[in-house]
Amino acid sequence: MASLLDHSARGETVGYSFSQAAAAPVKQHGFYPYTDNGGSTLGITGSDFAILAGDTRSTSGYNINSRMVPKVFKIGGDAETGEGAHIILSVVGFAADGNALKERLDSIVKMYRYQHGKRMSVSACAQRLSTILYQKRFFPYYVTAILAGLDEEGKGALYSYDPVGSYEREQCRAAGAAASLIMPFLDNQVNFKNQYIPGSGEGHALEAKKPEPLPQDHVKQLVRDAFTSAVERHIEVGDNLQMLIATKDGIQEVFHPLKKD
């Protein structure tokens, strides 16, 4: 009689499939949370300005999603127009992470202003951005960020990042799909790498040309040249060039057409 009431023993004695659940093999899931949306960005500083530029193409694989998806943003300004901002941020890589990162930094810079009654300095913002990136060290924002603005002395400031928050201040930096095409050009044309003063000596005595801050018009032309060249050799770069220029008068935005093929 006792055996009729003994429910726990049934599963084992009868051997129905629903009692064997514990022996199930563990299933692996195959969801990859990242994608690459292509594109390239570039930043150069001068003595009293900083320029951040990026193309506006968005890709997935060989498809062009859209020809107008800007990658460079004003940080800490009006939500719609970006008015009143003094910091610029470019993000390239996984666009969804880039947007999330932009919105977090934007609200932090805004909150700083409300809480302290003054604008956040570019160096403070740079350190904060590094912290945001590092907080997601083990599930990173898959983006290469560049932050720019004017420092406390009014000089152009530019900070470049890796996806997990390592950063340094530089004169110029290219990031994204065509970074490997643009960066050597910048090394040569901005930092005058491999350029020597003619007739200054023979062999090791040859004197290297010293880098110095370039005028704004010259830098703008370098940026346009860099992108027109990158468009020729990289399929993920093209459509339009977006340029944000930070000066003491605020941030100016300009667009130039690039090849759409």
Partner: peptide, 19 residues
């Protein structure tokens, strides 16, 4: 035949839509 018990998994990690 026996029912594929992997659909009735009670142990192991929590699984989500992977396709």
């Amino acid at each position: 035949g026996a029912y594929n018990p992997s659909y009735l998994q009670t142990s192991g990690p929590k699984t989500h839509t992977s396709s």
